[in-house]
Structure formats: structure tokens, C-alpha cells
Design a protein around this nucleic acid. Structure first.
Lengths: 146, 146
DNA sequence: CGGGATCCAACATGATACTG
DNA sequence: CAGTATCATGTTGGATCCCG
């Protein structure tokens, strides 16, 4: 019988998983989606809600979401302008998995940060040094047997 | 009774949701986690599996995941070096929500891309032009009533 | 094989000023 | 108010060469 590695389906550049995850793999998209999740919001409301984002990046991120059919943009014919953003039905299908990620953050971020602190306090020798050390230990063990 | 907007809890820079989501908001982290999901893999296996990633970015992403306690790194004392990566128990808690995102991609990415194509075929006037147009339409409707 | 070090191009992002 | 335009900067990412 042929003995071979379990086949892991490769994440080709054009597979659906990658095309989908790449939509979300930038700095603000996940956060903007979570902000808009439950009701129509005006541009300035999102801007205030999402501390730290600039107008430029919010505009850009919302445009991307609109383009991808995840967010509706409604312009009201008033001066000064008023624009409302809300999730499309397609966008709403993303909320549940996104919310699961939010829950994960709430539950586990502390443990992550403890791990990070611990990591930063340890020394981190380079790979070749680790190998050299490990190999030397084996040599010493071997000579101890003589 | 006071009539006011529903309060949406702000996504402060330091709230747990943001600290958590920011771990994942970069180009490769989600994909690397999904790659490592079910068994220990060597560096070169992940590299082959994740089409398009460079050694540098894979190293960097894996270091970040190790630092955050999501991935184990095991160095074997052999030459040439062999290094295996696997999920920690903490990292495994992320797989379920991540997989939900993967499922969403598989189910909805086509609809997203159809929306994108449609968007790109429409014209997109600037906001001020839209407002001017809409306001003018209202004026015309009003004069039609005279 | 699994990196590290360096250099460089590309892009993402921020700051500021302007507009109807 | 909700952008747009421009400029400046920071960060990312790839290419290359190195090493044990």
C-alpha cells in the first residue's frame, strides 16, 4: 500500500476560501462591518464609533464594502449631505461568523496577551544556534556513554 | 420620556474586540491559521500549501502567531534543520470561528463577485453631483405641481 | 531546510486643505 | 456633512544573498 502524506487541499490563489478571506484581510473591514451590523448609520456616526479611523480610510473601506455588495449606501437629497450605510442581505450573512470572531476575542484575548508577555520575556536564539546547541547536547550524551 | 439614539457601544482602541480582531487583520494570518489547522506541518509544507506567500512573510506571520500563543514551534536537532508548527490549545479555539468564515466564503463569494462586476459597470458620480441632481429633481417635481 | 540580513519598490495609511 | 485631492510618511512585502 502506498504510504503518503495526507493530502491537504492547497490554498490556491484563486480558490474560494482565499478570494473570500482576502475581502476581510485588511485593517478596517472587519471593524466597519461590525459597526454597521444592526442598523443604518450615517458616515459621521461610524466615524465617531470607530475610534482611530480617518475619514479617508472610512470612505475607502465603505466603498469597498459597497462594491462587494455587502453594504448599502443611500444618499439623501439634502444640504448638507446625509448618507446612510446599512448591511445588504448579503452583508448580513457575514454577521454571524463575524460575531463568533468577536466572541472569541472577548473570551481569549487576555490569554493571548499573557502568552505574548511571556514570549517577550524569554530569550530567542536564532535557529542555527538552537540547532548547534541541541546537536552538541547529543554529542555530549554520546560521549558520556563511552 | 427621553428620545435618543440607541447607544452603540463604541469600539474603543483598547476594547477586547479590537485587540482581538487586530491580531487577525493582516494579509496572511487567517490563511496560515487555516493551513495549520489540523496537523503539525513543517515550514516548507506550509510554504508549498499557501501559494504566493514568501519565506519572509511566512516566517514573520508564524513568529507572530507563536508570540501570541496560537502556534507551537518545535525545532528538531537535525541537520538540515526541521521545524514543525502546530496549533496550541488556544489556537485551536480559533479554528471553529475561522472555519465559519471559510464556509461563508465558499457559499457567498460568487455573489460578492457578481455584485462587484455590476458595481464596476455602473457610473459613480461624486457626492456633490448626486446631491445637486437629486435636489434639482425635487425642484422640478415641485414646479410640476404649479 | 529554515531561516536571518539587507535593500528596495509598492502600497497602505495619515495629515491637511478644500468643496458643494 | 460627507466627502475629494494632494502630499507625505510608514509599513509591507518581495528579491537577493547569506548561513549552519
Amino acid at each position: 500500500m502506498e504510504r503518503r502524506k495526507r493530502v491537504i487541499e492547497p490554498l490556491d490563489v484563486n480558490c474560494r476560501t482565499r478570494r473570500g478571506l482576502e475581502l476581510l484581510s485588511d485593517k478596517w473591514t472587519l471593524l466597519v462591518l461590525i459597526s454597521v451590523r444592526e442598523e443604518a448609520l450615517q458616515f459621521s456616526q461610524i466615524l465617531a464609533h470607530l475610534e482611530g479611523i480617518s475619514k479617508k480610510m472610512l470612505t475607502q473601506t465603505l466603498r469597498g464594502l459597497e462594491r462587494n455588495g455587502l453594504v448599502n449606501r443611500v444618499v439623501y437629497p439634502v444640504i448638507p449631505p446625509m448618507v446612510e450605510y446599512s448591511l445588504t442581505p448579503l452583508g448580513q450573512t457575514l454577521i454571524e461568523p463575524l460575531w463568533a470572531l468577536r466572541d472569541w476575542s472577548e473570551q481569549h484575548i487576555d490569554e493571548v496577551e499573557r502568552a505574548r508577555d511571556a514570549y517577550d520575556q524569554r530569550d530567542h536564539t536564532h535557529l542555527q544556534d538552537q540547532i548547534a546547541l541541541l546537536v552538541q547536547q547529543r554529542v555530549e550524551e554520546a560521549s558520556a556513554h563511552d
